[in-house]
Each structure stands twice: as C-alpha cells, then as structure tokens.
C-alpha cells in the first residue's frame, strides 16, 4: 500500500483503504471514495498543500497531509 499523496499528477490508481478521522472518512466514502474505486490525481502543485483528485466524475480537493490517510494499491 502507498498513500494517495504519492501519486503523480495525471496518474490513476485504485483505492485500497480510506482512513482518517471519522467524519472525514465517512464523508469521503459517501462521496464515493471506497476501496476498489479508481481515482486520478489531477493537480498536486496548488497553493498551500492542496491536491485535487478526480473520483467518479467529480473533482475533490483535499489537503496533502489529510490525504495521507488514503491508500492505493501498488502498481503492477
């Protein structure tokens, strides 16, 4: 497993685990961030430390530090 923040901009991968504080993790899951879901990192060089992720056709922005709680499967 590797954290989501290690993804390179433009690359896709499948989620394996969604962690973090309960409210955060629940909201993310309800927005469709679930184990097995494909995500794409759209942007990583925002201002501050925000990253932008595409999931299920939506663009969601998270803080890099908080995105450490999301894990991806290893690339084959």
């Amino acid at each position: 497993m590797r954290p989501l923040s290690e993804l390179r901009p433009g690359d896709c991968a499948r989620l394996t685990r969604v962690g973090g504080e309960r409210g955060f993790c629940r909201r993310l899951m309800e927005m469709g961030f679930l184990p097995g879901t494909q995500v794409r990192l759209v942007r990583a060089v925002g201002i501050g430390d925000l990253i932008e992720i595409e999931v299920r056709g939506a663009h969601i922005s998270l803080r890099r530090s908080e995105a450490q709680a999301l894990f991806l499967e290893r690339p084959r």
């Binding site: 925000l50 663009h59 969601i60 998270l62 908080e66």
Partner: peptide, 10 residues
C-alpha cells in the same frame, strides 16, 4: 482544524 473536503464544480 477540521479536515478539508472541497468539491471543485465544473
């Protein structure tokens, strides 16, 4: 600080 989940609509 509450975690941020910010949707960027088209």
């Amino acid at each position: 600080t509450p975690p941020l989940i910010l949707e960027l609509p088209p």
